Simulated scan of single mutants.
Amino acid sequence: MTALTVATWNINSVRLRRDLLHSLMDQAAPDIVCLQETKVPDDLFPEDLGTALGLPHVLKRGMKGYNGVAILSRLPLTAVEDTPDWCMKSDCRHIAARIDTGTDPLVLHNFYVPAGGDIPDRAENPKYGHKLDFIAEARDHFAMNRPHRTMLVGDLNIAPLENDVWSHKQLLNVVSHTPPETEGLNAWRTEGFIDAIRHFVPDDQKLFTWWSYRNRDWRASNRGRRLDHIWVSTDLIGNLARHAILQDARDWERGSDHVPVVLTLDL
């Protein structure tokens, strides 16, 4: 068997925080890094970054100032070209690749789901409606294209379980944990995936990947949410080896408000 380690991280600007990727490599030694909120158009993406990290194969899909996703890999990548234009917005929230693992290729999806604004009402807040529509489209897509040898990672911007937030009761009407969001995300996941991190961490344990910049002492208050996820198709359950949440990355100098999530498969 060969171990394959994949990390996902909402980096909140790849040009601003590119040096922190070396810390990620030192701590987790991933073979593949998936980034969200790269916030850079493709022609300005730092071309030397992959080589500097030992991840020379790079795919990216970006735009100026917002959104953006990228995959950096030690192994060769082939872009999946026929991905949907989610909600017909062409807003650089998804990229997919086939990974040359030496046997059957592994398909990797990297998502940045819309945050959804502040008001959990479709009529008052079109951003919330966009988020719900995005999730529904993704669910329908994978219902029609059942995943096989597939990983899905990214900032899905939803904490789906009660213990994925610091207070289930207080956040039920807060965007990222409202019932329409959590029900929608869970419906998407059940179209052929399992929650790989919760495979290792029981549902009754608190688990967070994001702490607001507004929290000056985020460790003391620990008002976190699990917004960053790794799913695998059900045929890969037996390949799950280990996971890591790099919580200390929240204290990296000029760090993101998200921390990297890491999964290792034995293939």
Rank of each mutant, 00 (worst) to 15 (best):
A3S: 14
A3Q: 14
L4R: 03
L4W: 03
V6S: 04
N12M: 02
N12D: 11
S13C: 08
S13R: 12
L16K: 14
L20N: 13
D31V: 00
I32R: 03
Q36K: 06
T38G: 02
K39G: 04
V40W: 09
V40F: 09
V40G: 05
D42N: 15
D43I: 09
D43E: 15
D48H: 14
T51A: 15
A52C: 08
L55E: 06
N67I: 08
V69D: 03
I71D: 07
I71N: 07
L72W: 08
L72I: 08
R74G: 11
L75G: 06
L77M: 09
L77C: 05
T78M: 08
E81Y: 03
D82Q: 14
C87N: 15
C87Y: 12
K89A: 12
S90N: 15
D91V: 07
D91M: 11
H94R: 07
I99G: 03
N110K: 08
P114H: 12
G116K: 07
G117N: 05
I119H: 08
P120L: 02
R122C: 09
E124K: 15
K127W: 03
K127Q: 13
L132Q: 06
L132K: 05
A136G: 02
E137D: 05
A138I: 01
A138S: 10
M144K: 15
N145M: 09
N145H: 15
H148R: 15
R149V: 01
G154P: 08
L156Y: 11
I158W: 07
A159I: 11
L161P: 00
L161N: 14
L161I: 01
S167N: 15
H168M: 04
Q170I: 08
L172D: 00
L172I: 12
V174T: 15
S176R: 12
H177L: 06
H177Y: 06
H177C: 07
H177K: 09
E181I: 05
N186G: 02
W188G: 00
R189I: 14
E191Q: 15
G192T: 01
F193T: 01
A196H: 05
H199N: 13
H199M: 00
F200R: 02
D204M: 03
D204K: 13
Q205A: 10
K206I: 01
F208K: 02
W211V: 11
R216P: 00
R216Y: 07
W218C: 10
S221T: 14
R225D: 00
R225Q: 14
L227Q: 05
L227T: 02
D228C: 07
W231D: 04
V232M: 08
T234H: 11
D235K: 10
L236D: 04
L236R: 10
R242N: 13
L246P: 01
D248I: 00
E253P: 09
G255V: 06
V262M: 04
V262Q: 03
